[in-house]
Write a protein that binds this DNA or RNA. Structure first.
Lengths: 106, 106
DNA sequence: TCCCTGTATGACAATACGCGCATTATGCCT
DNA sequence: AGGCATAATGCGCGTATTGTCATACAGGGA
C-alpha cells in the first residue's frame, strides 16, 4: 500500500488532467510553443483562466515558459501526458471493443 | 489535436483517479479481493460512500464484483492504474531529484 | 413468512472548483 | 517618467463533488 501522502500526490496529479480545459491547453502546446494570445484564440477561454491553468500545469512541471518581452511563450515539458493518454486510450478501445462483442453476441 | 469528445473521456477517466478515497480503494483491492466490510474497516469511510465510489470505478471497468450471498466481493480489474501510477511516480521522482540538485547547487 | 444482514439510493450540508470581470503588477517603448 | 501591452491576482457566482445519515431494497435462514 502506498502511503497516504503518496496517494495524495498521485490524486493531485491526476486531478490536473481531470479537466478538459487543461488537457486542451496541454494538447495545443504539444504541437509547439505558443503565446497566450494564441491559446486564447484557440480555446476561447479568458486570459485570466488560461493564466491560472498554465500556472498549475507549470507547478506540476508539465509546461514551461520563457519570457519574450512582455509576452510569454509556453511549451509542453516532457512526454508524460502523452504516455498517460496512450495508456488510457488503449483501455478505452478495449472497453468499446468488449461492448461491441457483447452486442454481437446478443 | 484529439477531438473534444476524446478529451472529455480522458478527463473523466483521470477524474476517477483524482480522489484519494478512490485511489485508496483501488490500492486495497489490488492486494486481493475484499468484501465491503473490510474496505470500511480499512478506510474508515461510510458504507454508502464506499458503495458509490465502487460503483463509479466499476462503470469505468477498474473494479469488478461478484455476489456471494448478500455480501459482495470486489477486486481490481486490470493493471492500467498500476501502470499510470508507475509513470507518475517516475515523474515525481525526477522532479524531486531536480529540486534536490537545485538546492545543492545553490 | 418474518427477520436479519448487507448493499444501493435519496436528501442534504459542506466544500472545492471552474470561469469571468475587474484590477493590479510587470516590462517595453518613446 | 508616462503610456501601452501583456500577464497575474482578488473577488464573486454558479455548479459539481465529497461525504454522511436515513431509508429503501434484496437475499438467506429460522
Amino acid at each position: 500500500m502506498p502511503s497516504p501522502q503518496l496517494l495524495e500526490e498521485y490524486s493531485q496529479f491526476f486531478r490536473l488532467l481531470s479537466e478538459p480545459a487543461r488537457l486542451q491547453l496541454l494538447c495545443h502546446l504539444k504541437q509547439g510553443p505558443l503565446d497566450v494570445a494564441s491559446l486564447i484564440e484557440a480555446t476561447g477561454f479568458s486570459q485570466s483562466h488560461i493564466s491560472r491553468q498554465l500556472g498549475q500545469l507549470q507547478r506540476a512541471g508539465l509546461v514551461r515558459c520563457e519570457r519574450e518581452g512582455t509576452r510569454t511563450i509556453w511549451q509542453a515539458d516532457g512526454v508524460l501526458v502523452d504516455e498517460l493518454c496512450a495508456l488510457v486510450q488503449t483501455r478505452l478501445k478495449q472497453r468499446l471493443q468488449a461492448q461491441l462483442e457483447q452486442l454481437q453476441v446478443t
